[in-house]
Design a protein around this nucleic acid. Structure first.
Lengths: 172, 172
DNA sequence: TAAAGCATGTAAGAGGTTACATGATTGG
DNA sequence: CCAATCATGTAACCTCTTACATGCTTTA
């Protein structure tokens, strides 16, 4: 997962560890720690996915290798399995531009389906909870309602992305 | 964290493992696994926080003990530290009703402050990214924008909860 | 020349998941 | 009586964080 994100960032250009941490943080959903990042870099180097191209001073910049490109491609193309994390999906999304259009739409719609399913079961649980008149904590209800609203907004957002893909499609 | 959630659920009534898993799942943000839950139960029992009151058949129901109540109280009252997870906050929220009103407002406003800070830095990064005309991936931008919108909606929601507390306050 | 920030790295451990093993209970 | 679901439990392992250790580089 972290490996995937690192490879994705190195697709654009060589970067050193510190820079990768910043770039990852700027994606907004993950402030990865050095204790996680540096071991990941060595792991990737050992696999031959990246290679060090020494930077200025103490910096150790890495570039992606042909082997790394292959690995990145495999990770990107693999259909996201059902248990894909929130984070994993966001990383996939961050690099979705590297996928051909039909593939992109597939990923987005797969996610949409999953969220719809979640939403449906959340709705049922909420109805149940509300009819269970006594004793239902109002914070718990507020939490559930807000989660549902957020999911609905996520779905609408995904629909927007898909629509944009299709819109572009007619011009491509 | 899991311990906290388990204690919180056992505050209401005795429950067995399977039931705890379901209840936790119904909160909406965490489908905990058995491999995590059962060891947690034994851990809590060893600490004297819960005790088994045998249920029907194979079921092993647990109830919270006086010691468990103390632990739950401590966990609930501790000011959430800066690195509190999303999940940890949601659990805290699920049991916020057990806290006195002023404390509740404190927790909500603490969270609001954190989200505001995040939002501010996200906005700066986004402005930066947009002015960096070339090469900024559109999916990355969409991701950042959506994250910002979600955070804004979360803040508005928190404001609503705080307003509700204050509204109730004048009647209590 | 000291402080602040940049940069890399390791060890320990927190906090989970997956996969497996086992068996009871219920419904068609 | 068979399948599905309920129910408990263990072992292996994965992923990431925290805390620590180290030293370079820039700037006031």
């Amino acid at each position: 997962m972290l490996d995937f994100a690192v490879l994705g960032l190195l697709m654009e250009r060589a970067r050193h560890g510190y820079e990768l941490k910043r770039a990852l943080g700027e994606l907004g959903f993950w402030k990865v720690s050095f204790g996680s990042l540096y071991p990941a870099l060595r792991r990737l180097e050992k696999r031959g996915a990246i290679s060090a191209v020494s930077g200025t001073g103490r910096r150790k910049a890495y570039q992606i290798t042909d082997e790394g490109l292959k690995i990145f491609d495999t990770l990107l193309k693999a259909d996201p399995d059902a248990s894909e994390t929130e984070r994993a999906f966001q990383i996939r999304l961050a690099f979705l531009g590297h996928l051909p259009r039909e593939r992109r739409v597939q990923v987005l719609e797969g996610r949409r389906t999953k969220l719809s399913t979640n939403l449906k079961s959340a709705r049922e649980i909420l109805i149940d909870a509300r009819s269970n008149t006594e004793n239902q904590d109002r914070y718990r209800l507020a939490l559930m309602e807000h989660a549902m609203a957020t999911t609905e907004s996520d779905i609408a957002w995904l629909d927007g992305l898909v629509a944009a893909e299709r819109g572009v499609a007619s011009q491509n």
